[in-house]
Amino acid sequence: MLNIILIILSGIVVGYFARKLPQVKHVGSVISLIIMLLLFFLGVSVGANEQVVTNFSTIGLDALIISFGATVGTVLCAWLVYSTFFRRKGKNS
């Protein structure tokens, strides 16, 4: 897993020094293309994996629960930070 961090850091260093090159503008499109390719591969491994196919509804429900929990937790923290530091005093909104 250290590889991951090293690869990202080397990318950041390269990106910083290459930031004035015109080719850097295309990095976003390269990323989208690679993601498309990898999501297709992920789809293939999902479709080829019987355990995932038979449990798809459980997987969907688990995803919904985790997503809901994470979002509610985040919204409550955001509300706390907003009402403590951001809301202008003397206003109720």
Partner: peptide
Amino acid sequence: ILYGLLFFVGVQIGS
């Protein structure tokens, strides 16, 4: 391919 992706994500952040 994933490692390549992560490298480009880094490039995007750095630039």
